[in-house]
Amino acid sequence: MRSGSETFVKAAGLVGLAGLVVAFPGLASDPFVLSVGVVIISYAVLATAWNFVGGFTGYISLGHAAYSGLGGYATGLLILRADVNPWVALLLGGLVVAVLAVPVGIAALRVRGASFVIVSIALVLVLLLVFQSWESVTGGSDGLRVPRPFDADVLRPEQHQRFFHLHAVLLAVMLLCWWVIDRSRFGMGLKAIREDEDKARSLGVPTVRYKLAAFVVSAFFTALGGGLYALWFGFLDPIFQFSILVGSNMVLMSLLGGVRSLFGPLVGAVVVGYATEFFKAQYGDTQMHLVAMGVLLAVVVLFLPDGIIPAVRGLLARLRPGQASIREVTQEELAAEVRR
């Protein structure tokens, strides 16, 4: 089944990818390209974090901006109001959000399908109002200026470079966690929930506990992504932090790349992130880039409904010699069945 050459190709691909990520800031022609790179890798972090719950359990949360926003604000407020070291604040922020995600998850995961989507949106809207109105603590709609973790003598391009690599480290940790869960018993239970939750329950999968665990892990990583972004960008505006657009971007990127694949959200983030910047550059200040994005997404949904990675994998499998399709095999089996 798993040949040596396949393992080699996989390992080589992984090393190549890692090399590309390490080298990218050096290759970027100017600070703008570098900053776009940081935006894209930040989206890759958020989409991959989203995929812990979306990909494994099939619960589509449109409101994950709640956790990235909370992570950002928690990090910023801990630095500003409690004078905590920025990196400690980042981690504490993630933990605080993870704790908050427990009651939220218990309440939200009671409902499935479209109802869950609505509930997930509700939380973002509530948080938006709270963070806009509670001026004395959050800075209100004027926003919150987050001090940068590096000294003033570290210049802009250098900042971008460091944050690009920090995001890459976080992304690598998350991908490793996703991979471990994917092949674990826990992961198999989560996938069973995604396929048929009642059936999973009847087989003994503790669905409530499993869903909650995935949800909390997802919220934790999303908050770390939001906090890291806050440290890089240096400014938080509630209208952008608690925005349904940010949450739906995580969903779109994951679906685009493929929610069942480890690298799906990453691929989706690169494609969507690059396309967004490209269309923005093409169409300048108009809103045409949104139209172009819409067309791109429609094309992908029409022709690659499972996402880019499964489509490419399917194409490669068809090109490989001696690989009959599953259908043909079952036909034979069916014939054998009849004869038996």
């Binding site: 869960i181 018993r185 826990f186 198999m188 239970g189 069973a192």
Partner: peptide
């Protein structure tokens, strides 16, 4: 999918 892990650690 029907295998019972037994403990949190063994679930992984």
């Amino acid at each position: 999918a029907a295998v019972r892990p037994g403990s949190v650690l063994r679930a992984l």
